[in-house]
């Protein structure tokens, strides 16, 4: 069927074309600016390799820090050769924690949060336990890995 009149007037057509063009232009500009300003996120490592002798010989009831990517990792000699590797970052607001040997607890000075020697949140605002890592010793290497991550080192 042929219509005797046009469905879109010339003015509507031009306004839509111009308006749509402007909208597309600004959307493109702001998307590009936004994508540039937003960082390409790195991520925390799945594992780190440390020198075993530096960490396995620390005295009982003490910790030694290591770099877990850019964050603090703590290797903890709990007692009698029971070791624990954990992320030294409070689960409340991400402040670094410290170990209090006299109390046998981990402490976050920012908002006074406490964790027991197993990393469990016991007092103050922290909502979750500390993140515990797996660790294995291969020769002179101490491999600290995120839980569930299987590390296969290339054979020398």
């Amino acid at each position: 069927m042929k219509l005797p009149y046009s469905l879109v007037t010339r003015r509507t057509f031009l306004n839509t074309l111009l308006g749509g063009g402007f909208a597309a232009f600004f959307l493109g500009v702001f998307t590009t600016l936004g994508r540039f300003a937003f960082p390409t996120l790195g991520k925390e490592p799945d594992f780190v390799i440390l020198k075993a002798e530096d960490y396995l010989n620390i005295p009982p009831n003490s910790t030694k820090p290591f770099a877990w990517g850019g964050k603090l990792g703590l290797f903890f000699h709990k007692n009698d050769n029971v070791f624990l590797a954990l992320k030294g970052v409070c689960t409340h607001m991400e402040c670094n924690i410290t170990y209090k040997p006299e109390l046998k607890k981990f402490y976050c000075p920012c908002h006074k949060g406490w964790f027991d020697a197993d990393g469990k949140n016991i007092q103050g605002p922290p909502p979750k336990p500390l993140e515990i890592f797996d660790f294995t010793v291969e020769g002179d290497k101490l491999i600290v890995a995120r839980k569930g991550v299987k590390v296969e080192l290339p054979k020398a």
């Binding site: 850019g70 964050k71 603090l72 402040c95 670094n96 410290t98 000075p109």
Partner: peptide, 8 residues
């Protein structure tokens, strides 16, 4: 970056 903040 790897140290605990000071007390208080």
């Amino acid at each position: 970056m790897l140290a605990a903040p000071p007390e208080n």
